[in-house]
């Protein structure tokens, strides 16, 4: 790890001020991605702004037909939240699949979304559920937020404060794990919303999370795994690496989508 100057933010405004003022700053939330990245010297911020002691950013609330999760909420707390479990069980289930128990005690939803790892779980949920990412400056629709590999619509001086998820009629997530890293080789989040059906895919795309319009169209006719049988997506645009070829990933997208739809139809999400 390269040397940096450490700053302990005492509140959101303090963190935002430091972010504006300091040279080459980086926000540290749970650190479960940033610290390993810094150890590998793939990130080397001059100034690190630690949000760990910032209060009031890890609450989960329900209002009307939506659930709002503070950016510093740990994965385990999303997983265990009665509010999330009741309103969007697929989201609570997804949070319990991230990393391992110790990682889930530290990692935060805001950190994961801001990082936009192409194999992370939360981006698929945000995109499928039509979430709104709220920052200290503005609100950004998930559709506009995820821009590519590790790229988001966040400006350098913006901090995610919370994420609002509209409650779907039903939703399901299926993750095909990379056995070594526990990240999604392919993960598909399917949401049946009052106005539309969305299918969002993480892990597979060469430029991050994406939707599958042809699957959404088929599910609109009938929301059943059977509606997706025989449908394919092109291998073009899929990621290809030692963990799986583009063709393999394209194939898995269909398999995972069918399992996600099946999970959405069950009361409790699939194991």
């Amino acid at each position: 790890m390269y040397a940096f100057t450490y700053h302990r933010a005492t509140g959101l405004r303090h963190a935002a001020n430091l972010l504006e003022k300091l040279e080459d700053p980086k926000i540290l939330a749970g650190g479960q991605t940033l610290l390993p990245t810094m150890k590998q010297r793939l990130a080397s911020p001059t100034n690190l702004i630690d949000l760990d002691k910032v209060e009031g950013m890890s609450e989960i609330t329900a209002a009307g037909r939506s659930v709002t999760i503070g950016a510093l909420t740990r994965h385990n707390d999303v997983h265990k939240s009665p509010i999330v479990q009741q309103a969007i069980p697929a989201l609570a289930y997804l949070a319990g699949l991230i990393g391992d128990p110790a990682v889930r005690h530290r990692g935060t939803i805001g950190g994961s979304v801001a990082n936009n790892d192409p194999n992370a779980d939360y981006p698929a949920a945000c995109l499928a559920l039509g979430a709104t990412i709220v920052t200290n400056k503005r609100k950004i629709a998930a559709d506009e937020f995820f821009k590519g590999l590790f790229e988001t619509a966040l400006e350098p001086n913006e901090i995610i404060t919370k994420i609002t998820f509209p409650v779907p009629k039903k939703a399901g997530y299926y993750k095909f794990r990379n056995q070594a890293s526990r990240f999604a080789l392919v993960g598909v989040f399917v949401a049946k919303r009052p106005s539309e059906i969305r299918v969002a895919v993480t892990g597979a795309g060469s430029s991050g999370v994406f939707r599958v319009p042809s699957f959404e169209e088929a599910l609109k006719k009938r929301f059943s795994p059977k509606s997706l049988e025989g449908l394919t997506i092109p291998a073009d645009g899929m990621a290809s690496d030692i963990h799986g070829s583009a063709e393999y990933r394209a194939h898995l997208v269909n398999v995972c989508a069918r399992r996600a739809v099946a999970a959405a139809d069950e009361k409790t999400p699939a194991e």
């Binding site: 650190g31 760990d52 391992d100």
Partner: peptide, 30 residues
């Protein structure tokens, strides 16, 4: 492993299991 995979470094921070190779000492202040 020093990459938060293996769990040999697990300790409890405020009662919760955490990988101590993936947390700054300064974050554990207090």
């Amino acid at each position: 492993c020093d990459t938060s995979q293996c769990g040999a470094c697990v300790v409890h921070v405020n009662g919760k299991a955490v990988k101590s190779c993936t947390m700054l000492a300064l974050t554990a202040d207090g």
